[in-house]
Design a protein around this nucleic acid. Structure first.
Lengths: 241, 241
DNA sequence: CGGGAGCTTGATGGACCTCAATCCCTGTGG
DNA sequence: CCACAGGGATTGAGGTCCATCAAGCTCCCG
C-alpha cells in the first residue's frame, strides 16, 4: 500500500498523539524496507546478534520447534507490528521468525533502537507499549491453549486476528484477508490440521464464521465472542508525556 | 532468610556486575517490604492503577480466570522476581496476582520506577532484562501447553522451577521446597488435578522425580531433561554499560 | 477424636489424534 | 487445450489421552 503514514504510526496514533518530529523520525526509520520472500526465515531460534523488525506488509509467524519436528506458533506478526524488541536484551533469540507471505520489513539494529530511546523517549515508550500489548495477547493465547477447547480456541483466535487487523485498517465489515492455511492454524492452536478442518466446518455450519480461500468472514460477531468468551482489548498508554 | 543482599540483586548479579551505587539504591528500594497473607489477591484482573512488585519471600501466582470458573495460571513469581513491569504501561491489568504462601513484597509505584530508569539506566536495563527472561519462560510455557503431552509438560515445569530457584539459591542438590498443591499444578499445566496426580506417580515410578509434601526432588536430571526436551536458559545481558 | 483439605485410585466417556483415502484447485508444461 | 502434478482441503474409521464422576484414603490441626 502506498501511504503517507505507516501501519505502525497508524496503530500508535490510534491511542496516543505523536508529535510531528516523532512521526517524521518514524517515517525516516521506515523509509527503506527490505523485501522478503514467502517462507524466508528471518530469525532462527538460538541465533545471536539480535535486531528488531518492523513489519510494513505481509504476514509472518514466530514459533518454536520441538525435537520431534512439531512446532508451536507463538504469534503471527502483521503490518504495523514491531518484533523482537524484548529479545534484543537477550544474547540469543528464543524463537524463530519466518515470513508467511512475501513481506516488507524494516530491520532495526540495537544501536539504532538505543538512539531512538534516548532521542525520542516518548516514542520509545509508545513502542514499548505497543509491544506490551502484543505480549498481553501471547498470554491470552496461553490461556486458550490451557483452558479452551478446540472450537472456543479457534473462535478466539479469529477474533484476535480481526481486532489486530482492524486496528491498522486491514479489516472491514467483519471480513479480512488471511493467508494462513489449516496447517498454520493447527500449529498456532495446538491442534491437528484435520481437527482444525472439522472445527472450521462447524463454525461455518453454525453460521458464526467462514474461513476459506485466504479470506475470513465473521457472520455473527456477538455469538462468536460469546462462544470464545472474548473481550476486546481496550488498553491505552498510561504514561503521559 | 536474613541477608545482606536481596534475591533480586543476587539474580541480576549472576549475570552482570552492578556498581555499588546501584546495589545500594536497590537495597534502599527493597528496605521496607509489605507482609502479605497466603491467598491475598494483590492485583485483580482488569484493575487500574498499576504498580510493580518485587518479591522478597514467598510464592505467588499470576493467572487469568474464565467465565466458567476455570483458571489458567500464567506463572509463579518467586523471590527475586519483579512482576508487573510490563503492565505498568497498560491502563488495566491483564491478569490477577495472588500470594500462594505468606509473602513479603515491595510495591513499586510507577513514579518510583520512572525515577529508577532515569537515574540508574543501567540498573533499569538489567531489570528489563530480568523480566524479559521471565517473558521468555512464559513463551516456553505456551509451547508446553500447545505441543507437549501431560508428562512432558509436567517434567518441563519442574525443571523450570528448579532452574529459577537455583538461580536465587533456593535449590540445592536437585531438590527444592515447593508450596504448590496438585490443584495449582493442574491450573498451570492445563490439566485436571486428577491427571496431575497420575502423572506425578508416573514420574515417581520411573525414578525421575518425586513431588510431595512441599518438596520436589529430581532423581535423574538428564533423563528428565530428555523427556521434557528441556534446554536450560543460558541468556546473558547484551547491552554493555 | 472429629473434620477437612488434599491426595489416591478405579471406571467410564469424550475430545482430539492418527492413519488412510479421496477430492479440489491451481499452476505448469506439452 | 489438455494432462499432470502437487499442495491443500475434506471425510471416515479407529485409537489414545485426558476429563469427569465417584469413592476412599491420609495427614494435619484444632
Amino acid at each position: 500500500m502506498p501511504q503517507s503514514e505507516s501501519y505502525l504510526a497508524r496503530k500508535i496514533s490510534a491511542f496516543v498523539d505523536l508529535a510531528p518530529r516523532e512521526l517524521s523520525y518514524l517515517a525516516d526509520l521506515e523509509a527503506k524496507p527490505i523485501r522478503v520472500k514467502r517462507g524466508k526465515e528471518l530469525v532462527h531460534e538460538g541465533e545471536t546478534g539480535q535486531r528488531a523488525y518492523i513489519f510494513q506488509s505481509g504476514w509472518a509467524c514466530s514459533f518454536k520447534s520441538l525435537p520431534d519436528g512439531d512446532r508451536q506458533i507463538i504469534s503471527f506478526p502483521i503490518p504495523g507490528d514491531c518484533i523482537g524488541l524484548r529479545s534484543m536484551l537477550l544474547r540469543t533469540s528464543d524463537h524463530s521468525l519466518a515470513a508467511v507471505t512475501d513481506a516488507q520489513v524494516i530491520p532495526v539494529e540495537a544501536a539504532r533502537m538505543k538512539q531512538l530511546f534516548s532521542e525520542f523517549p516518548y516514542l520509545g515508550t509508545a513502542l514499548l507499549w505497543a509491544t506490551s500489548r502484543d505480549e498481553a495477547m501471547i498470554v491470552e493465547h496461553l490461556v486458550s491453549l490451557g483452558r479452551r477447547n478446540a472450537i472456543e480456541r479457534t473462535a478466539h483466535f479469529i477474533l484476535e486476528l480481526h481486532d489486530r487487523l482492524q486496528l491498522v485498517g486491514l479489516a472491514e465489515n467483519n471480513e479480512f484477508d488471511c493467508p494462513l492455511n489449516q496447517d498454520s492454524f493447527a500449529d498456532a492452536l495446538g491442534l491437528s490440521a484435520i481437527h482444525v478442518n472439522r472445527v472450521l466446518r462447524q463454525l461455518r455450519t453454525r453460521k458464526l464464521a467462514t474461513v476459506k480461500a485466504h479470506k475470513i468472514t465473521i457472520h455473527d460477531m456477538s455469538a462468536l465472542k460469546n462462544l470464545a468468551s472474548y473481550a476486546s482489548p481496550k488498553e491505552s498508554l498510561v504514561i503521559v508525556r
